[in-house]
């Protein structure tokens, strides 16, 4: 059992790296996507060394355009926009990964159980999840964020709520088709418990799909986080946050102080794009692998 698991993990790992090599279609997407994401992660991890100034202190006059001293200019209070962008990467990555981990932790087991056992439980769960899925994510997140109050953790919870149905639906669907397959029946024949079948046989087979859903939903979650911050529901000053900085820059944008809005918005888009590219490339790989 343990061996199979190890083998499957290794298999997953190689299949992760493999697409980076070779000339398969879509390789460039994976490369670009990874480059963007890794750059942002690097920025977040080494923020104290990269950022030239404190992100929360007023370090110069306000409204300074981009220059060598301030790569992306200063905001209305005189804080360095570049430093805020660098530190802001921490917040958005933290929120989005926390949110994804949470929604996976809830969505995947529920999907497994629901798809595996079926019956009334499945019907009720599916209905609840479908209703949530059919409802605009941002509005749901707004309501939850308002209940919980502004802080990165609470924002993560609000966003996690929104993506639980995404994982649930995907895992449930796959489980439904996997549970009637030969290897599962074989496992049942040798007397494996339900739990063991779900987590040792079915779950490892979902690795790829989960990865695809993960990168695509992270891309989406980034936009949701920025949307919440833009509506003023995510962080408290003086925390640097891209969506919030964009909102704060909005009134100055029209006076020609474009850098206060342009850079945070661009970063949101780039990061979302990075994850979307990875997700695209992986899902393409997955679908070609399946058709073969």
């Amino acid at each position: 059992m343990a061996e199979t698991l190890a083998w499957r993990t290794r298999n997953l790992a190689t299949s992760l790296i493999a697409p980076l090599r070779g000339r398969a279609p879509g390789v460039w997407m994976l490369r670009v996507g990874l480059a963007i994401v890794l750059t942002v992660v690097f920025m977040a991890v080494f923020a104290p060394f990269i950022a030239p100034y404190s992100p929360v202190k007023r370090v110069d006059r306000g409204y300074l355009p981009p220059s060598w001293e301030h790569l992306m200019g200063t905001d209305n209070l005189g804080r360095d926009v570049f430093s805020r962008i660098v530190w802001g990467a921490r917040i958005i990555l933290k929120v989005v990964f926390m949110a994804s981990a949470l929604s996976m932790a809830v969505g995947i087991p529920l999907g497994l159980v629901s798809g595996y056992y079926g019956g009334r439980l499945d019907r009720v769960l599916s209905m609840v999840m479908d209703s949530m899925y059919a409802f605009p994510a941002l509005i749901l997140a707004i309501a939850i964020a308002a209940v919980l109050g502004p802080s990165p953790t609470n924002t993560a919870i609000a966003i996690a709520f929104v993506y639980v149905p995404t994982y649930f639906r995907m895992v449930r669907g796959q489980t439904l088709s996997l549970k009637s397959q030969l290897f599962v029946e074989a496992a049942r024949a040798i007397g494996a418990t339900h739990r063991s079948i779900m987590f040792n046989y079915i779950l490892p087979n979902l690795g790829h799909t989960i990865l695809v859903v993960f990168s695509l939903s992270v891309a989406d979650a980034i936009l949701t986080e920025a949307g919440l911050s833009f509506l003023g529901l995510s962080v408290t000053v003086p925390t640097p946050d891209w969506g919030y900085d964009l909102r704060k820059g909005q009134p100055f944008f029209l006076d020609g102080y474009w850098w206060m809005v342009f850079f945070p918005g661009m970063m949101v888009m780039l990061l979302a794009m990075g994850f979307a590219l990875i997700g695209e490339a992986l899902s393409e790989r997955l679908s070609t692998a399946q058709t073969r």
């Binding site: 929360v56 209305n76 209070l77 502004p150 003023g232 000053v237 003086p238 909102r247 704060k248 009134p251």
Partner: peptide, 14 residues
């Protein structure tokens, strides 16, 4: 954050 306008956050920071 919103009731007294966007400047409120800046007042708090100052």
């Amino acid at each position: 954050p919103t009731h007294y306008g966007d400047t409120e956050a800046d007042i708090a920071q100052l």
